[in-house]
Amino acid sequence: MSKLKAAYQTLLNKWHIVIAHRFFWPIFLIVGLLFSIAASTFDILDLYLQLILIYVGINIILTVSLNLINGYMGEFSIGHAGFMAIGAYVASLLTVNVFPQTANMFLFPAAILAGGIAAALIGLLVAIPSFKTRGDYLAIVTLAFCMIVKSVLENIDAVGGPRGLLGMEKLTTLPWVFFWTVLSLWVIRNLVYSKFGRGVLSIREDEIASDLMGVNTRQVKVIAFVVSSFFAGIAGGLFAHTLQYINPRMFDIIKSTDILIMVYLGGIASIAGSILGAFIYTILLEILRPLGVWRMVFMPLMLVLLMIYRPRGIMGLREARLFIPLRDLFASKFWRQKKKESGDASAGD
């Protein structure tokens, strides 16, 4: 009986590893991709529901990328909408003015990528001076950046000035959103579980101690900021080709506030939390649509209340095991096994 129980226990232990890291992800990816293709080609899913899922995906990308700065690194950036704007405008200009209309279907990923790269380059320009000095300059610099982007766009006639840009095709489909969302989650999760990601975390915990332990804190901050801006740009491109219309006002501080709320709602420094925050908030926005302008009161209020009563969010500083690499998740366990094996080996000699 006890043997059976032990066997069951090992199965349970192993099962978790198996389910988490060997089978779950490939199956999830294939099913997700197939479902998203099916849903957008055949009329399985209501167009409205499809649209909501597309917004959920875009918001996940925005949330997880801002979480890198505000959650993992513990700095405070309010400029995420500015980077989103850059991605949106660059991608839109490419599909509308540069790429031949007929090839847009195929060149769409290139347009999105270009939007991401443009945002990343601008991110680099913002990061280098802002991280030169210690202190809470980032909030001010990114706030200013967001305002500058908006007024620059309003003053360039070639991109439609305050009227904005029109004429994008509806190229953002569910499969593409699925692809970019998974990519952003995967890349940021990879970064977090690397020496640079641990550097990011240590900056949040104690920047001076981090520097003293050999972490090149400036390099780490710049990398995080560039990656974060890149994915904001990606999200912007996807957003522009969903709505098929953009103008500078869409990317103001209110948009940034939305993203901040999703980060602090879902939980700082957590991939799972970012997904959760984006999901809940996007759905909530839809439900509260009848409130109209009152949303503008409700949302900032929600942010303030969150930061007071639940500053770390639902999943704050915790991660779903699915996202943690085995090497980290079972570090102690693996080490014990290894020690036992080498002990057995030497005992056998």
Partner: peptide, 22 residues
């Protein structure tokens, strides 16, 4: 001045930032 919220392992691995070459 440990990295309080991080694991014991990560506290040590952070200090090997310079030794990990990638």
């Amino acid at each position: 001045r440990l990295f309080k919220e991080l694991t014991v392992l990560d506290n040590v691995r952070i200090a090997r930032y310079g030794q990990a070459i990638y």
